[in-house]
């Protein structure tokens, strides 16, 4: 197995992990604080990608498009909260799931109507589109590194926001005891809206970052949301730290599994058998891991402290 390929796959794994974290952190934030299950979170990820695509063609600049698209997805998150989530907070999870499932159908169909059935590729500016030598002889695409850097920056920003600002303090307080926070005179409704919009920004950003590689496409959100569920289940629902480590772990396992499982299998079985069984197993790998982790630690790897 050659080093370049391995390093590239490793980077791909980290990149997937970072994107998963951006999606999962919003989910876990909303769940931890609002006790709300938002299936439509993946739809916001998709919206981010499509809006960014349109704005890239409109403005001619991908970077500018991302900057302009972020407030738009925040608004989408805000509307989602105001009209669908807020009336459902007091109901049970089953209704959260059904309501947001309806929202997905609506958003997906609207996206289909607006952007058409085919995917949209986003052109990158030349300074992001090249390749860069990170080590002697190991060349990787610049944009992959950009994704990782942007994702890590967003993660760091989130860490700072949650741990070192007044808003973050309210968010943490809200997560441990909602009723108490509102009893102390905090405008809990506005806080909830903000949290929801923040989650939407993170998911939307993830969609914008991946779109130049995979295209903005219908159904992209529905694919990532379930993987994001696996991430927050493995990490412990409501735990930001858990989401971060689990996202990287899942991202790496999934990518490396798909890339190298057949090579590993070839060590101890015929190459035909390896080529047949490796794709099947690697597609199930993260779910099997989830099952194993759950059967040993039903609360996840890093469960949040008791609320």
């Amino acid at each position: 197995m050659d080093t370049t390929l391995f390093v590239i796959q490793l980077l791909n794994g980290v990149q997937l992990g970072i994107l998963l974290f951006l999606v999962a952190s919003g989910l876990t934030l909303v769940f931890g604080i609002l006790d709300f299950v938002n299936l439509a979170h993946g739809a916001v990820y998709m919206l981010g990608a499509f809006i960014c695509a349109s704005l890239t063609f409109l403005t001619g600049s991908f970077v500018l498009a991302v900057i302009l698209a972020l407030p738009i997805v925040a608004l989408a998150g805000f509307l989602l909260e105001r009209f669908i989530a807020r009336p459902l907070y007091e109901r049970d999870h089953l209704e959260h799931v059904l309501g947001t499932f309806g929202a997905i159908l609506v958003i997906d169909t609207l996206a289909h109507l607006i952007w058409g059935p085919a995917g949209i590729a986003i052109p990158l500016p030349p300074y992001l589109d090249g390749q860069i030598e990170i080590w002697s002889g190991i060349v990787v695409p610049t944009f992959r590194l950009t994704i990782i850097a942007a994702g890590l920056a967003a993660a760091a920003g989130l860490y700072w926001l949650v741990n070192f600002t007044r808003l973050g303090m309210l968010i943490r307080a809200g997560a441990s005891n909602r009723t108490m926070v509102s009893a102390l005179g905090v405008d809990i409704k506005t806080l909830f809206s903000l949290v929801f919009a923040l989650g939407a920004v993170l998911a939307g950003l993830a969609g914008m970052l991946i779109a130049p590689i995979t295209e903005a496409s219908l159904g992209m959100g529905n694919n990532i949301i379930i993987t994001a569920f696996v991430v927050i289940i493995v990490g412990g629902i409501g735990s930001m730290k858990g989401a971060f480590y689990a996202a990287l772990f899942i991202g790496l396992i999934d990518t490396l599994g798909r890339a190298f499982l057949d090579d590993i299998f070839k060590l101890f079985m015929s190459s035909a058998a390896a080529e047949n069984s490796a794709p099947a197993l690697s597609s199930m790998l993260i779910y099997i891991l989830m099952a194993l982790i759950l059967s040993m630690r039903p609360q996840g790897l890093f469960p949040p402290k008791l609320r």
Binding site: V37, H93, V97, S282, S283, Y287, A291
Partner: peptide, 27 residues
């Protein structure tokens, strides 16, 4: 696995297992 947990965990895990089968069949 999934009956060990409740509520929202159960919803997500049943979803994840179905998706696992989906990807298996795709592969």
């Amino acid at each position: 696995v999934c009956l060990k947990v409740k509520g929202v965990y159960f919803i997500m895990i049943t979803m994840a297992f179905a998706q696992m089968l989906y990807y298996l069949l795709v592969s």
